[in-house]
Write a protein that binds this DNA or RNA. Structure first.
Lengths: 327, 327
DNA sequence: CTGAAAGCGCTAACAC
DNA sequence: GTGTTAGCGCTTTCAG
């Protein structure tokens, strides 16, 4: 940068101003600076900027790449952050890399807030940073004290699913739950109450699962081994629904003629033509926007109280649900 | 850090030494420094370290999260980088975020080398950095001049697939290709030559695809519309195979009894019990290790010539392939 | 509109 | 073993 200053014959400070689009330089100087930068192949140095700036305007994002819906959210965070004037630092959780390491890295990079997608941690793991740094949890397993949360009204989502099926004429509707995964207990509760409200308490059947394809496949096999197959199954998420659906197909059943299947997330998977899954939508763009907004409120507007932001889910009806067919 | 120094009553430089595990401090001092750091809640500042250090030892990784196999590679890069003493900086390519932006960000963070997974770019997009910064392309569409590449011998992989099917008794083997996607042309070529070598030139049938599930589904529909369905299909990758397989199932066919399907990548998808896809393996851990190694060779050992690292693929036989059944 | 000077938190080279 | 010094590349403050 000093090279540019020397070349153009101005001070370094002025060059800095120009790059930051601050007022205080004549249009001609600006032009000459940009040109010189170009000629010299100048690249800003993020380390130096970060070090010197009073605010880093960095948002740290913690994620895993295993759920298609989480991927959608990560992608949506970029434009949302930009809109609020923040940069994004990514840190992946992987098998050999736990949440602590990933958070430490983000904090070392001066992240002003941490967004965690599908937090696996027990609240205790976060206590060290909560309070020091704003934390926004997106679809957490359990809400940590002192952190904001963005999630959808899971019980309502499942209720819509049950209502949709009931209106199609289904009575025997099973649910494969998500165990301790984010939102799973609320979805399970939503299933139970909606079934009761519809007078289908006697048809309640919950199978244990965990949001993976294999848990869906396992549940499907369990159901196939029963005397009496339910006419519809609500999965804990899309991945689980995928396992259910394909295992049914493999067994020679037809979806939705023999059995209807509903997923949760409305991820890319649900939209595939050969999956074509009726699913409960949690808009990734909305979730990302609200999460960034929550962080910005703490950072820019000084909010200090916790917010629990609950989005309304909507059922997206596709080809995996239909009227039950008497056999 | 100066706080710690003051508290313990030593110089800042000594504290720095201790944190970097360098020799030059007595065990007692070390202990006292660590304790003071703990009490003060000290966190290292990556920006300052990066700025001051002669070497950043950062590896920039460019990726998309859309292919399960790419995700596997990203995860595998962490341990590989650590082994070679490097940190990892992630930058995602997404719809609203092109390769240029992502690379600029990584370079601003002082990445000493860039690893690109499944590079979409035409070589021209990289010319500005190639030569300035070592670039390693993992499974690139086309190899850029001046960059290293890590990929598998795609033609051999497909050849193994053809051989496996031929040995099972298949003659009518189709291929859904990957268009201009990484490795696709070589896989296509491998298919053609292996078929000819087996005396199956008359059975060569190539359908256009692009490594997505939908292209597999589309190809399956095309095949189903034909008078004569091939007894086996080799897909361009696992995602494509997934679309093929499920579309066949939907149409009431059985896999592998009515049609065998082979994928490519041996990604997580292939291993799902209800997909159970015979697939050509490109070990993510090996790919990651070799890519990091290639970068390290340039950075630490001064290599300046390009390397094209080609891995031997292996066919992983699962349940989606079997003997052809006469109908 | 422009410039000079200070310093962010740390590391590297050298002296003691 | 330990301390001193200088300075990475940039932004910020204050003075022209």
């Amino acid at each position: 940068m000093s090279d540019i200053a020397a070349r153009v014959g101005v001070s370094q400070a002025l060059v800095s101003l120009v790059f930051r689009n601050q007022p205080g330089a004549s249009p001609q100087t600006r032009e000459r600076i940009f040109q010189a930068a170009d000629e010299l192949g100048y690249r800003p140095d993020a380390a130096a900027q970060l070090l010197r700036r009073t605010r880093s305007r960095q948002l740290g994002v913690l994620f895993t790449m295993r759920h298609p819906h989480d991927v959608d959210i990560v992608e949506a965070i970029y434009p949302a952050a930009e809109k609020h004037g923040y940069n994004v630092a990514l840190s992946a959780m992987a098998v050999a890399r736990d949440e602590r390491q990933a958070v430490d890295e983000l904090l070392a990079l001066r992240s002003e807030a941490i967004l965690i997608i599908g937090a696996a941690s027990r609240p205790s793991d976060l206590t060290s940073i909560v309070g020091q740094t704003p934390v926004v949890e997106i679809n957490p397993r359990t809400r940590a004290d002192g952190a904001d949360a963005v999630r959808t009204a899971d019980s309502k989502g499942v209720r819509q699913a049950v209502d949709h099926l009931a209106e199609l004429g289904h009575r025997s509707i099973a649910h494969v739950d998500g165990g301790t995964m984010p939102g799973a207990s609320e979805r399970r509760r939503g299933y139970r109450t909606s079934m009761r409200r519809r007078g289908l308490a006697g048809h309640i059947q919950i199978l244990a699962g965990d949001y993976t394809e294999e848990s869906g496949a396992r549940a499907a096999r369990e159901l196939l081994a029963q005397d009496h197959l339910p006419t519809a199954v609500i999965a804990g998420n899309d991945r689980c629904a995928h396992g259910l659906l394909t295992t049914f197909l493999r067994a020679g059943l037809r979806v939705p003629e023999d059995v209807s299947v509903i997923g949760y997330d409305d991820s890319q998977l649900a939209r595939l033509s050969f999956i074509d899954l009726t699913s409960v939508r949690q808009g990734a763009a909305d979730v990302a926007e609200l999460a960034v907004q929550a962080a910005a409120e703490r950072l820019d507007e000084g909010r200090t109280t916790d917010r629990d932001i609950v989005l309304e889910p909507t059922l997206v009806v596709r080809g995996s649900t239909g009227h039950p067919h008497p056999r």
